[in-house]
Design a protein around this nucleic acid. Structure first.
Lengths: 340, 340
DNA sequence: GCGCCCAGTCGAACCGATTCGGGAAACGGT
DNA sequence: ACCGTTTCCCGAATCGGTTCGACTGGGCGC
């Protein structure tokens, strides 16, 4: 059932049906009604592929998420949800592409013409071949995160350096002098994952500013790794009394590791994170954390993309967010003396 | 840049380029190489819309998720992730449609021709207009969950009745004689949400079998509602010593409510859930729960859909899973006497 | 009464691929 | 030398929409 079928049943030409539907030229009320009746009767819907082919756009955007093997964190999930919601508000559809590496067929398909009008890219590395490939394909895109050359693309990102810097200062204010940074996985950091590097920069800068010492740790992106990481930390560096982390997935494991070591948070050990507000509040105890406005980020990324699709030649805007640290129950004064 | 451009640069016809790419007819090695060189040089990719139009399929499936306003539970997220992963393995793309109600434009778009080859539907209600609309549109689909008439569609589902039944028997075995069921939200249950109704059925059946009494509660789908719900439960029914729930989103609130009431799990109060294994193990204390194999469900749903797309006339298969209850640390013997 | 404009409609071209029928050349067998 | 195959390639039709140019008739101003 196509537009020709509707046209012949309504006794008009195909173009008239098209104009009746789009309203781009006037059609008499009588004709419009006749056409609408036929459409309702047959439950006709225009073919999206044909329309996309002719119009040269699909009203669909691609969302590149971390590969399926890694579980999404709450924050990433909030990104995805808010992008999807923002897209729905703009009457756009979202095509999901789980791809991190260079050779993902799913990403490859995204690049082909007539598939999506634009792309939102997550989990960007400092050097990321996907950026160049999107540029080559002349596909408008926006990053949640950015590469080493900030000006080469349009993005919105969390200022991990500033955020971790604040966390360390907060812990130092509480009297902690030996602080650990629990980073993302060693593979990810080695691959040049931006937040990992920037968090480390903010960490070492803050340590220097306060004249204190820190331990810099990578940790796998799941609870088991968090448990193993914190256990090792407590064994090898018993002097450490606080940790700052950007690794949300490891937090439940860190929590359990402290518990198993007989340490109470925040009495014996202080912990800060970089997570969404809801999750920080559900954490036991509620987590002192930089509350990342994940919803806003997704929405704004979508806005940037829509703007970029409408006008690809416009200057590339960047948005850097440094959410303040919200004090909750997971940080407290450093224990004096050798309580442990 | 289209196939004609490639053809003229390589000095062949458009059809030859097409055959060189698809391999559906033989092309001489020399010609193929010439064409490939041009393609590599220009970084040509066939237009997906044109291909979809001609071939009559898109190699894309639609995934209907709960509307964006509701946060996905871990289990739902696992469904989504595993569907996406299974799709990627089959070289299919996934189009996300956040829609629950009857008038979602996003769902409406999914029904139009040339958009997706099939659909996976989540959060199905006992009477769900989307099922009929998909049938009318002659779009192959598979439900994760099912309607009141099991035979009208192809689905895979968790047997909530059996699972809750088992949970109640487990609690009764431990000596609990006053047990609560924490269901999903009152709106969802009123709207005929299947798992809500089936859980209640399994609950009342088990109570009758054991000759004990229960409290049947609806609870909103978030932590705040869980907190409020359990607080009310403890106030109005202080004799209750255990709860079974299918409401994953409420669990953190339930946990906090018990804590605030000074009750320790499982010493003073036992709790069972229906959640994914990973999350059950991360819960504090680890949750006695029916471990829903969410990954498998997503994968199998995808398999069912692929089968259904290949052969729409095949009989509609149904899969009902009743994962056994894994005993963890959140359930224990009922306290005797009036400990509270 | 004449010319003009506008609303309403149609026919045809076009978007960029796939695919079928057929033709030319090469090749092998007798 | 002739005929039948096979190999390789081309041209044209097709998928289902959108859109441009053109045509028709009615209303209006002068």
């Amino acid at each position: 059932m196509n537009i020709g079928e509707i046209a012949s049943r309504a006794g008009v030409s195909r173009s008239t049906v098209s104009y009746a539907l789009s309203g781009k030229r006037s059609v008499s009320d009588a004709t419009r009604k006749r056409i609408q009746d036929v459409i309702d009767e047959l439950d006709y819907r225009p073919n999206a592929a044909a329309r996309a082919l002719k119009e040269g756009r699909t009203r669909t955007i691609g969302l590149v998420i971390p590969p399926a093997s890694t579980r999404l964190t709450h924050m990433q999930l909030d990104f995805v949800a808010s992008v999807v919601e923002a897209a729905a508000r703009a009457d756009l559809d979202v095509l999901l592409s789980p791809s991190g590496g260079d050779h993902d067929r799913s990403f490859e398909r995204l690049l082909s013409g007539g598939r999506v009008d634009g792309v939102i890219l997550m989990e960007i590395r400092l050097e990321d071949s996907r950026v160049r490939r999107l540029q080559n394909a002349k596909l408008p895109f926006v990053g949640i995160g950015h590469t080493a050359r900030a000006e080469e693309m349009c993005w919105i990102d969390v200022d991990y350096a500033a955020v971790i810097n604040q966390c360390v200062h907060h812990l130092a204010d509480l009297g902690h002098t030996r602080i650990a940074l629990v980073n993302r996985s060693v593979e990810l950091v080695a691959a040049g994952y931006g937040p990992g590097h920037r968090a480390r920069d903010g960490f070492t800068a803050a340590l220097a500013q306060r004249g204190i010492q820190g331990i810099d740790l990578e940790c796998g992106d799941d609870a088991a790794a968090g448990l193993e990481c914190v256990t090792r930390l407590l064994r090898e560096h018993p002097e450490v009394t606080a940790a700052a982390t950007i690794n949300e997935a490891a937090l439940p494991g860190i929590q359990r590791g402290l518990e198993e070591a007989g340490l109470s948070v925040p009495r014996d050990f202080s912990l800060t994170g970089v997570v969404g507000r809801t999750w920080a509040e559900e954490f036991r105890p509620p987590l002192t954390a930089a509350d990342v406005p994940a919803q806003d980020i997704g929405t704004q990324a979508m806005d940037l993309l829509i703007e970029r699709i409408a006008n690809p030649a416009a200057p590339r805007r960047n948005i850097l967010l440094a959410p303040p640290v919200s004090l909750r129950a997971s940080t407290g004064p450093a224990r004096t003396g050798s309580a442990r």
